[in-house]
Deep mutational scan, measured.
Amino acid sequence: GQVNVNNTTYTFPTPKLAKEFAQKAAKKYNLTVHVSGNTVTVK
């Protein structure tokens, strides 16, 4: 799974890890998680 945070893309071996990372990043920066297919964007 891929996660985009502040124009930086992070790649994870599983969608589960990507989702967990996205949720932590969203909480940390007070942003929202947007899911589109296999790509998760935090903005």
Rank of each mutant, 00 (worst) to 15 (best):
Gly1Pro: 13
Gly1Glu: 12
Gln2His: 13
Gln2Leu: 11
Gln2Tyr: 10
Val3His: 12
Val3Pro: 12
Val3Gly: 12
Val3Ala: 12
Val3Thr: 12
Val3Lys: 06
Asn4Glu: 10
Val5Pro: 12
Val5Phe: 12
Asn6Glu: 10
Asn6Val: 14
Asn6Lys: 14
Asn6Thr: 13
Asn6His: 15
Asn6Asp: 09
Asn6Gly: 13
Asn7Val: 15
Thr8Ile: 14
Thr8Asp: 05
Thr9Val: 13
Thr9Ile: 13
Thr9Trp: 05
Tyr10Asn: 01
Tyr10Thr: 02
Thr11Ile: 14
Thr11Asn: 06
Pro13Lys: 13
Pro13Leu: 09
Pro13Thr: 08
Pro13Phe: 05
Pro13Gln: 08
Thr14Glu: 03
Thr14Ala: 02
Pro15Arg: 09
Pro15Tyr: 08
Pro15Ser: 11
Pro15Met: 11
Lys16Phe: 09
Lys16Leu: 10
Leu17Gly: 04
Leu17Thr: 04
Ala18Lys: 00
Ala18Arg: 00
Ala18Ser: 01
Ala18Asp: 01
Lys19Trp: 15
Lys19Met: 14
Lys19Val: 08
Glu20Asn: 06
Phe21Asp: 00
Phe21Lys: 01
Phe21Arg: 00
Ala22Gly: 04
Gln23Val: 11
Lys24Arg: 14
Lys24His: 12
Lys24Phe: 13
Lys24Trp: 15
Ala25Ile: 15
Ala25Met: 15
Ala25Thr: 08
Ala26Val: 11
Ala26His: 09
Lys27Ala: 10
Tyr29Pro: 10
Asn30Pro: 04
Asn30Val: 03
Asn30Cys: 04
Leu31Glu: 03
Leu31Val: 14
Leu31Lys: 04
Leu31Arg: 04
Thr32Ile: 14
Thr32Tyr: 06
Val33Ala: 05
Val33His: 01
Val33Pro: 03
Val33Tyr: 07
His34Pro: 01
Val35Pro: 01
Val35Tyr: 04
Val35Phe: 03
Val35Trp: 07
Ser36Trp: 09
Ser36Lys: 09
Ser36Gly: 03
Ser36Asn: 12
Ser36Cys: 04
Gly37Glu: 05
Gly37Phe: 04
Gly37Trp: 03
Asn38Lys: 07
Thr39Lys: 09
Thr39Ala: 05
Thr39Trp: 03
Thr39Gly: 02
Val40Thr: 01
Val40Ala: 04
Val40Lys: 00
Val40Gln: 00
Val40Cys: 00
Thr41Asp: 03
Thr41His: 07
Val42Thr: 03
Val42Ile: 15
Lys43Glu: 13
Lys43Thr: 15
